[in-house]
Each structure stands twice: as structure tokens, then as C-alpha cells.
Simulated scan of single mutants.
Amino acid sequence: MKIVAKGFTLIELVVVIIVLGILAVIAAPRFISLSQDAHDASIKSAFGSFTSAVKLYHSCWLTSGKSGYQVDLACYGDGTLDSSVTGYPLGTDTSASKGGTVLQGEYCKEIWQGLLDNDEYTLVSHFGDPFVKGNDIVYWFAGSQLSSSSTYCYYNYIADNLVEGSENWQLKYYPGTGKTEVGKGVLTITP
């Protein structure tokens, strides 16, 4: 009895390689976008937690029976977060805030850290060269007087794309009103 060796022909192997190549071209972008989806979900969750914490802080301020600017509001977190004159989080060392009416850049970092109480993200100031590996969120502020509707802290999530001028997730927080806005924004650093 003669044994016949079975195997793949060259044509069959080429066809299989072509089919695998086509599948890779179609499937690869979907797998690559899973990484972006994970970044999006993570930062949206953090921004949502920030928004909830602002509301909780303001509720604490309201139920404390106090009014106006408060230093070290004891009923929220570790009790070191000061309020704006309208009862929203302003920072932990706000002695230069003119009675809770003026926003400064470092306050924005203090607000984030005081409300979220975690070290999951590395926050860096808008100044210098923030677009380096290991930095997650660039923060700073616009305006200064809390009575102005254009005064806010901003937090740009850059961990998923460290290229300056690229569109990324951004949170704007208005400590005069407690309003938060989450959306896509472009961050550029001007010298």
C-alpha cells in the first residue's frame, strides 16, 4: 500500500496569507481604537467624579449653615478645602483669594486634589513643557475675578496624545457658579 503525503499547496498557502492580511487590515484599526476608548472612558469617569464632588462640596457648604468665603470647610473631605464666596471649592491655601473672590492657577490643582483625593493622574501646570511622557493632565486657569463668567479652571487630558495642539478631552470648572463643562478642546502653550 502506497502512503500519500498530504499537505498544502503553494496556492492554498498564498490564499490563506492574503485572507489573513485582509483581516488584519480590517481588524487592526478596531483593536487600536480600543486603547483610545479606554482612555476616553477613564477620563470621562474622572471628570464625572469631579463634577459630582463639586456638587457634594456645595451641598456641604449649604448645610453647614455658613455663608460666604469659608476656610477649611470641615464637613467635606479632610476639611482643608476652602470655598469661594459663593460656596464652591476654591483651593486649600486661598489666603490670596481676596475673600474667595479671585482665582489663581495653583488653586486649580488644589481643587482637583482636594475633591478627588487620589493620585491616579499626574497633573502639571500649563507652563514649561507639559507634553512629556508621564504627564496626564495639564491644568491652569482663565480670568481671575470669580464674578466674571469667563473665569474658570481647565484640565486637559493629554496622556492619550502628547502632541501639542491636538484635540483632547477637557474639563472646565467655574468656581464662581460651580458649573462644569466636559468636551473636546485643543491646548497650545504660548511662550
Rank of each mutant, 00 (worst) to 15 (best):
Y155M: 00
D93E: 14
I26S: 06
A27N: 14
E181W: 03
G77Y: 09
D129L: 11
T151G: 07
G143S: 08
Q70T: 06
D37F: 01
V19L: 15
I18P: 01
F127L: 05
S83P: 08
G91S: 13
I137A: 14
V4F: 01
E110R: 04
I43S: 01
S64I: 02
Y69C: 00
S52M: 11
V102Q: 12
D160M: 10
A5F: 08
G134M: 12
I158A: 07
L116D: 04
L187P: 01
A41S: 07
V71A: 12
Y88M: 08
T101A: 10
Y154K: 05
F31P: 13
V163K: 13
D78M: 02
L56E: 02
A28K: 12
W61V: 04
W61P: 02
G165I: 01
A53N: 00
K98M: 10
G165P: 01
G114I: 09
L10G: 12
L123T: 03
N118K: 08
I137Y: 11
I32F: 13
Q104L: 15
G178Q: 08
F50H: 07
T151P: 06
G7M: 04
A46G: 01
E110D: 13
T80E: 08
Y174G: 08
T177K: 06
G7N: 03
A142N: 14
L10P: 02
Y107L: 10
A96P: 06
G128V: 04
I11C: 07
I11F: 14
K66E: 10
G100T: 08
R30F: 13
G105N: 15
V138G: 06
L115Y: 09
T92A: 05
F50P: 03
V19W: 09
Y121M: 06
L146K: 09
Y76Q: 05
G87C: 09
K2F: 03
L187F: 10
A53G: 00
L56K: 01
S35Y: 08
G65F: 07
V16I: 15
G165M: 00
A142M: 07
S150D: 13
C153M: 14
D136G: 10
H39M: 01
G91R: 10
T94Y: 03
S97T: 09
N161Q: 14
G176I: 14
K172H: 05
C75T: 02
T94I: 03
T101F: 14
Y157L: 03
V15I: 15
T190L: 11
E110P: 04
G48E: 02
V71C: 03
S95H: 13
D93I: 09
Y107V: 05
S95K: 15
T86W: 05
K2A: 04
L23A: 13
F131A: 12
G79K: 14
Y173V: 05
V25F: 09
G178F: 05
D129Q: 15
T51M: 01
L34F: 05
Y174Q: 12
V15K: 09
S147H: 00
Y155A: 00
N156P: 01
I17N: 08
F127S: 10
L34I: 14
S64D: 05
T86E: 07
